[in-house]
Amino acid sequence: MNPGTPADHESTRTPSTHSPRPGRLGVGIIGAGRVGAVLGSALRSVDHQIIGVHAVSASSRERAELLLPGVPILDVEDIVERAELVLLAVPDDALADLVQGLAELGRWQPGQLVVHTSGAYGVGVLEPARRCGAIPLAIHPAMTFGGFSTDVARLIGCPMAVTAPAAVLPIGQALAVELGGEPFVLPEESRPAYHAALAHGANHLVTLVGQAVRILAAAGVEDGAATLAPLLSIALDRALREGEAGLTGPVARGDAGTVRTHLAALTELRDANGRPLDDVVDTYLTLARATVARREATGALGAQQVRALREVLSDHGEDSAGQPPEQII
Rank of each mutant, 00 (worst) to 15 (best):
L236A: 14
L208C: 09
R82M: 12
V115P: 01
G246Q: 02
M1K: 06
Y121T: 13
R260N: 05
I139F: 00
P3C: 07
R289D: 15
P128D: 07
G246K: 00
L236H: 05
A245T: 09
R61Q: 12
S41Y: 06
V35Y: 00
R13T: 12
D278R: 06
D151C: 01
I50Q: 05
D319F: 02
G322P: 10
L169Q: 13
S233V: 04
V71P: 06
P91F: 05
S57T: 15
S233N: 13
E242A: 15
A83D: 06
G224T: 06
G70Y: 12
G70H: 03
G299C: 04
T261W: 03
A64Q: 11
V90D: 11
H18K: 03
Q112D: 03
A239S: 13
V123E: 02
A176K: 02
A229E: 13
H140W: 12
I30G: 01
A138R: 07
T291A: 09
R130T: 15
L85Q: 08
M160F: 04
L155V: 14
G122W: 04
G243Y: 03
L85H: 10
I30V: 07
P250K: 06
R214S: 08
P325Q: 12
S59P: 01
S57F: 03
V185R: 01
L155R: 07
H316D: 09
A42F: 00
E65F: 08
R275M: 02
G249M: 11
R214Y: 01
E10A: 15
G172E: 06
I156L: 07
A142R: 01
R44S: 13
V168K: 00
R24L: 10
I79L: 08
E268H: 02
V35I: 15
A256Y: 01
M143N: 12
L137W: 02
E268F: 05
R295V: 14
G146A: 14
R63N: 14
G23S: 04
L43Q: 09
L309K: 00
A308M: 10
V76F: 05
L68G: 13
